[in-house]
């Protein structure tokens, strides 16, 4: 049965949604100084119902960002520090033998995954078994323990972090599991101005004050509004050509061993819609796709050994693809020249 068509947003609805998102953005900017792009991507990830993998050095404010986000959204959040001895049950929850009404029975004790926002700190330090348990929960948004399925709360967002240094004793996430993250965001180091502001306005051990700007119900409405953002066929075509261009057979993707999957196209679409809504628009655009292409695609491209030896990075390849793949897919005759506007 064909699903009913969604009513697209009108401009007023889009503006209203953008105002709410703007409040959230400003609240988070009071938590994390000088990381506006990171904040925007996290908000886009939240609105697109995606999970975000943050990669950066310790102490850059990743945990504070998650805490601030939870408080601004008035959502329940948990933090799990991943270690090699962490078991899947430590994430999903364990059955506990309890005596109820004179009878002993196993009751399910929910794990930290049963939160609206889960911060999985240094996810690459856990064993693959534990990683896969979390990633399954991320994908299915439910947990099955002893044959019993437990739905995760809605909204459910995982922000995982991994450290690019101290790689000894770590278990890098396989490509298939990386694919489940909507974004992989590099957390840049703070600038001098940002550091100065931190020194002036923060104090160790004292968490920042974060007002609640959006409740869970409003967040769900925003996530539904994202679905109603119109995806014009030319923009969808642009996404398709961009994802197809990552195939190793494409000359533009020289050095890529495995390209992006259709899930990447869906992630691009969702992220572009969410970004469009953040801008107060009723439709996604080529600019939205270009803005989210890097965090969406960078962890989905697997480079071959030669490319890595040559110093090629997924970021460089995505940048090259964005330059080479135009929104307008037809070439122009030699008697005409595309004007740079």
């Amino acid at each position: 049965m064909k699903p009913p068509a969604l009513i697209p947003l009108d401009d007023a609805q889009a503006r209203h949604a953008a105002e709410s998102i703007g409040r959230l953005r400003r609240a988070l900017q009071g938590v994390l100084f000088g990381q506006n792009d990171l904040i925007d991507l996290v908000i886009v990830g939240v609105l697109a119902r995606g999970h975000v993998l943050l990669e950066g050095l310790p102490g850059l404010g990743k945990t504070e960002l998650v805490k601030g986000l939870a408080r601004a959204l008035d959502l329940k959040h948990k933090r799990v520090q991943f270690t090699p001895d962490l078991l899947p049950g430590d994430i999903t929850g364990n059955p506990v033998l309890e005596e109820v009404d004179g009878r002993r029975a196993f009751t399910f004790q929910p794990g930290p995954v049963f939160a609206n926002i889960l911060l999985a700190d240094e996810i690459n330090r856990a064993s693959p078994k534990t990683q896969s348990a979390l990633l399954e929960a991320m994908q299915e948004r439910c947990v099955t323990v002893m044959g019993q399925t437990h739905a995760l709360p809605n909204p459910f967002l995982v922000l995982a972090t991994q450290n690019p240094i101290e790689l000894e004793g770590t278990y890098p996430l396989p490509e298939a599991q990386l694919d489940r993250f909507l974004f992989k965001v590099d957390v840049p180091a703070a600038s001098i101005e940002t550091l100065e502001r931190i020194v002036l306005e923060r104090e160790i051990g004292v968490p920042p004050e974060v007002p609640c700007v959006i409740d869970a119900h409003a967040l769900t409405a925003l996530q539904d509004a994202v679905r109603r953002v119109y995806m014009p066929p030319p923009v969808a075509n642009f996404i398709a050509r961009l994802v197809a261009a990552t195939a190793p057979t494409n000359p533009l993707a020289a050095g890529v061993r495995y390209g992006a999957s259709p899930r990447a196209a869906l992630a691009l679409s969702a992220a572009a819609r969410a970004r469009g809504l953040c801008q107060g628009r009723i439709n996604a655009s080529y600019e939205d796709v270009r803005d989210v292409a890097l965090p969406v695609l960078r962890h989905r491209l697997v480079l071959d050994y030669g490319a890595r030896l040559e110093g090629l990075t997924p970021d460089g390849i995505v940048a090259r693809l964005l330059d080479a793949v135009p929104a307008h897919d037809k070439p122009l005759p030699t008697s005409l020249k595309a004007a740079k506007v």
Binding site: P8, D10, D11, Y230, P232, P233, P234, V235, G276, Q279, R281, I282, N283, A284, S285, Y286, E287, D288, P326, A327, H328, A338, A339, V341
Partner: peptide, 20 residues
């Protein structure tokens, strides 16, 4: 081509499709 060069954020395609 027109909407991209003019920075119209795919507004022409959307409007042509009846959205906005």
């Amino acid at each position: 081509l027109l909407e991209e060069r003019l920075g119209l954020h795919a507004r022409l395609s959307s409007a042509a499709a009846g959205v906005g």
